[in-house]
Nucleic acid binder design. Structure first.
Ligand SMILES: [Mn+2]
Ligand SMILES: [Mn+2]
Ligand SMILES: [Zn+2]
Ligand SMILES: [Zn+2]
Lengths: 119, 119
DNA sequence: CTCCTTGTGCAACTAAGTCGCATTGATAAA
DNA sequence: TTTATCAATGCGACTTAGTTGCACAAGGAG
C-alpha cells in the first residue's frame, strides 16, 4: 500500500503531513488561518502556500475563493457545492443537482443566508 | 417616471451615471479595471468603490469574487449563475436549475472549463 | 564525501480594495 | 445673499492575503 506521497511522487515532510492531516479531519473547507490554528507544528506561510499549490497541481486539494478575499481549501472529492452564508460566514458542503451547463463544472459556490441566520 | 436615482433617494452625479451606464451595456459581470476602461469619464478608485458599495447596499448592483481576487459587478437581476472558465477566465451568465438547499440562495458561481476551451 | 535537487524560513514585495482627511459642490436655513 | 450643513470626490496612506527572491538546510544518488 503506497502512501499518498509515494502515489504522487513527492517527498513526505513534516509540513506536508501536518497540512494534510488537518484537511483530513476537516468537515468543511478551511482557510490559511484556520488550518494554521489546527496544525501541530508551525511553518512559514510561504511554505504553507507552496505546499498547498503543489497539492492543488497534483489534484489532491481543491481551493476556491469565498467573498472574504481568502482561499478555502479541502481535499479533492467528488464535485459538490459550498454554501457560504453572508451573515455568519460559515461554509457548508452541500449536495445539489445542477441543470445542464455549457462546459465541465469543477466547482460550485452558492451564497446567501443560511437556515440558522434566516429566522 | 422617476429616475433610478430618485427611486433610491441618492444624488445623480457624473460618476454614478458613468458607472451605471457601463453596467447597463454589459453582457457579463465586469471588474473595476474593465469598467474603468469603458467609462467615459475618469474618477478615483475610491470614488468608484464607494459608489459601487452604495449601489450594492441599495440592491441595485450585485457583486461576487471570482478566483482572481477581484470583485465582479453587474446590475441586479433575477438570481442566475455565473460560469467562470479556469482556462480563458471568461465569465458567462448562465441559467441553471438547482436542487433544494438549506437556506436562501442569492448567488451561484460555477467554475470549470468552458465549451470553447474544452475541445 | 561531493554533487544536485527539493523543501524551508525570512524578508521584501504585490495589488485589490479601504480609509482618513481636506476640498468641492449642492441644498437648505437664516 | 450669506451661512450652515451634509454628501460626494480626490489623493495618498494604509491593509492584508498571498507571492517571490534568495540563502540555507535536508536528503538522496553516485
Ligand atoms: Mn466541500
Ligand atoms: Mn450575470
Ligand atoms: Zn448563517
Ligand atoms: Zn474558457
Amino acid at each position: 500500500m503506497k502512501t499518498i506521497f509515494e502515489r504522487h511522487n513527492i517527498k513526505e515532510t513534516p509540513a506536508r503531513n501536518s497540512i494534510l492531516s488537518v484537511l483530513k479531519e476537516a468537515k468543511n473547507p478551511l482557510n490559511y488561518d484556520q488550518i494554521r490554528e489546527k496544525m501541530d507544528i508551525e511553518m512559514d506561510k510561504a511554505t504553507f502556500y507552496r505546499n498547498i499549490a503543489k497539492f492543488e497541481e497534483l489534484g489532491m486539494v481543491h481551493k476556491f475563493e469565498a467573498d472574504d478575499r481568502k482561499w478555502y481549501f479541502e481535499l479533492s472529492t467528488s464535485v459538490h457545492a459550498h454554501f457560504i452564508c453572508d451573515t455568519c460566514h460559515k461554509i457548508i458542503c452541500v449536495d445539489v443537482t445542477i441543470g445542464d451547463v455549457e462546459g465541465e463544472v469543477k466547482s460550485i459556490v452558492l451564497k446567501g443566508t443560511c437556515k440558522g441566520c434566516k429566522r
